[in-house]
């Protein structure tokens, strides 16, 4: 390619600063894989905005979450008397928005966010329940009694795709292997 092939007869293109040798591209140095950036973000942030759309009415609510190691699943818990539970019962298509803004203003270019889309379903008490509730409680110990309450339901989101946003407008998509 021009600009990277030292023998290319293209001299109209002056060098990129900090561009060193082939193989050490600016992209590799300054842009870790999108998957890793998403992983970092979800590890750092305890809460997500859960977006649901049942009943023709969009609705959002803050939830404490945890992701599985392979990032193919997320879990959260909600009481059954809530709006979000009602809407989740009507439509299992959900999105989770997770970001690292500090709300101090002027930080737009430094904020990273990920929008996770997927399908949600209730994990009933039984063999799988301990595994998924354990994942959530391990991260949010204060939710132990909440998770165990009979008036709460544990939801697992099967992740379909993650859209990672950085620098205000730079968007990359990551799709777990099972869907790509």
């Amino acid at each position: 390619m021009q600009g990277t092939d030292k023998n290319a007869m293209n001299y109209s293109d002056e060098p990129l600063f900090d561009e060193t040798d082939a193989g050490n591209t600016p992209d590799a140095r300054t842009n870790p894989a999108v998957r890793d950036r998403i992983r970092t973000l979800i590890d750092e942030q305890p809460y997500a905005v859960l977006c649901v759309g049942g009943g023709g009415q969009p609705y959002g609510a803050l939830v404490a979450f945890a992701f599985s190691e392979d990032m193919r699943h997320a879990v959260f818990v909600t009481p059954v008397a809530t709006r979000k539970y009602r809407l989740l019962s009507e439509c299992d298509h959900v999105a989770l928005v997770i970001d690292n803004r500090s709300n101090k203003g002027g930080e737009l270019m430094e904020v990273e966010a990920v929008t996770v889309t997927g399908r949600s379903h209730v994990i009933e008490r039984g063999s799988e329940f301990d595994r998924w509730s354990g994942l959530l409680v391990a991260r949010h110990t204060y939710l132990k009694s909440f998770v165990e309450a009979t008036t709460c339901k544990l939801f697992r989101v099967d992740v379909v795709r993650c859209l990672h946003v950085a620098r205000f407008q730079e968007v990359n998509q990551w799709i777990p292997a099972s869907h790509s």
């Binding site: 900090d18 300054t30 002027g106 737009l108 205000f168």
Partner: peptide
């Protein structure tokens, strides 16, 4: 901040 944050300066040519 918007100007300098738009792209990594390491990815910018002169």
């Amino acid at each position: 901040r918007m100007e300098l944050g738009r792209k990594s300066m390491d990815d910018m040519r002169w």
